[in-house]
Design a protein around this nucleic acid. Structure first.
Lengths: 326, 326
DNA sequence: ATAAGAACTGAAAAATTTTCACACACGGTC
DNA sequence: GACCGTGTGTGAAAATTTTTCAGTTCTTAT
């Protein structure tokens, strides 16, 4: 039998009216009493009509927590997601988060909207947030991120294989002093790409000639590129962990008068639109954005996957885009 | 006195239960009868409790209809808007639209969410949509667009003055054969920038040496640049109606072996992040995105501006970013 | 100290949603 | 063609929730 407000009122030891008020924002009610009523309602499984309609509305809503929109890869993801959701008549709520922002601060805001699912492309998902979402029965899918420990669904490009593909390309083209410009160290995108890259070099009896960190952004990567190219014994090829950094490194190399790819080969990862521009013609790995988004929605729509389950991880293959830069 | 369901039932000649069902999606009710009830409710001004909570939720929601997210200017806007809304505890719904998509097709989708306001950065707002929003008492603000005829609020950079500033800069630097690469002809951004540019040239007794259209995107602008530079009597300076096109033109110029700014000066408009990169160092007009977004929200929050009013237009000054390219 | 008023409350009234029993149309079966 | 299920649509009545009302308590300004 469906629990009623009357039962909640009895359980909380208040009047029926108070229960109704507890669910009406702005209604005059002692805060402590409201809390008691809400707790009683929760334990009985009571859902007020207002909450029910709110849930119905939110059911057609998916929240995207986007990280760095300045990296053109993410607008592409956003665009693709928006289109696919429009096609299935759902709505897209967007939150953005500065790289160093306090994620936990916006959790209540996000949860207040009670979306049916959350897609996260920002760098970090705290375990706090993961727990909160599980509790509220909201599905979470990480996109372009993997966090195996956190028992969370994830969709990503095969970053390991991509790292290998780039490495093989550089080896095949005869480069000898192959360096690596990393992103943010404790991200799966950085770690997996680096691992694949390192593995294939090792298999060929090589090791990474020089390393530096570019923090996934243009500015830091430019500085890193400059530093690496100015050192003694500079590399003749650099694999940058994403495209933005690769473009920065190319700019730095040209600034130093190096010809690409003759003096220095540069490869990236993502295949953002600019990678194909004539100023760069960057060799990179194309992430299958369309399919990644599709797969994220599949995970969300799959009723056999419950928010409380351990995470499912889907990995999709990238494509080597062999252009002029490497 | 607040109208009740009973009155609606009487007016529509149906039972009270039917009125309730009319407002419950999925409830079994003859479509024609539901329509009759809804019409009666509308004319009496009756709002069902479900609709009322839905409205309350939507009141904290603002919808962004974004156009071309591939132009990095718009992610910047989106990012700024998202941040400002998060700060004021509101939510951001995002729709994207291909440049040539049928705007009217998503109107019902957007309206179904009944947001408190809509911000539009996409190229076109049809009069259909304007009318629908006025009818539903939803405020609309165009951002980076002006459409004076449509009686719609708008916030934009001072495109006319920006066009003048660029023109003056090119004249001051002594360029003689000054050309213009336009965007999409019937947009206010194109028209105003072109007009300012043309006016200042005219004041100096000059006219535009050569014109071409780049459609606001990289690909077409690259082709336009190539065409213009390959013609007889090529220009020694080009003002491109936005930054993406300017970057394309620079790439095209380099492809033809031209040095920038010696053989060809290039100027843009927007100041997207890439304009400052070392590969380009583009002279351009910085749009005051932060203030534009702020102003758009001011228009939305200003209770003296009603959705039914004629539009208010706010213009904010841009800043000339003098870099190496011109 | 005291009046004014704001916040909180339960009982009861009002309003709305849901249940229930029934009517009716439709498609297949004998 | 008569005879079932089956599913949809319906109003009356029951169940449920929201709102009003009147009274209480607690603060705040004078």
């Amino acid at each position: 039998m469906k629990p009623t407000a009357k039962q909640v009122a009895h359980a909380a030891g208040v009047s029926l009216a108070a229960v109704s008020r507890a669910f009406t924002p702005g209604a005059p009610l002692d805060a402590a009493k409201r809390k008691r009523i809400l707790a009683a309602a929760e334990s009985l499984g009571y859902i007020s009509p207002a909450r029910r309609t709110a849930n119905a509305i939110a059911a057609g809503t998916i929240t995207l927590v986007a990280g760095d929109l300045l990296n053109p890869f993410y607008p592409t993801v956003l665009d693709t997601l928006a289109r696919q959701l429009q096609a299935s008549d759902r709505q897209l709520l967007v939150y953005t988060m500065a790289a160093n922002a306090d994620v936990d601060a916006i959790i209540p805001q996000i949860l207040a909207a009670r979306p049916s699912a959350i897609i996260v492309t920002s760098t970090f998902l705290t375990s706090n947030m993961a727990r909160a979402c599980r509790q509220h029965q909201i599905k979470v899918v990480l996109l372009n991120r993997i966090q195996r420990d956190a028992r969370i669904n994830a969709v990503a490009c095969d970053n390991y294989q991509g790292g290998r593909d780039i490495g093989r390309r550089l080896l095949e083209r005869g480069y000898r002093k192959i360096g690596f410009i990393g992103g943010v160290a404790n991200t799966s995108t950085h770690a997996e790409r680096a691992r694949g890259f390192q593995d294939i070099l090792a298999e060929a009896g090589r090791s990474i000639h020089v390393r530096a960190a570019g923090d996934f952004n243009y500015h830091d990567a430019y500085a890193a590129g400059m530093a690496v190219l100015s050192g003694g014994d500079p590399p003749d090829a650099l694999f940058c962990c994403n495209d933005i950094m690769a473009l920065a490194v190319m700019d730095a190399a040209r600034e130093r008068g190096l010809r690409i790819p003759d003096d220095l080969a540069v490869a990236g990862f993502d295949d953002i639109p600019m990678a194909g521009w004539n100023a760069y013609r960057l060799t990179t790995i194309r992430q299958p954005v369309e399919r990644m988004v599709q797969e994220a929605l599949n995970l969300i729509d799959d009723p056999t996957i419950k928010p409380s389950d351990d995470g499912v991880t889907r990995t999709l293959p990238g494509t080597l885009m062999a252009r002029k830069s490497a």
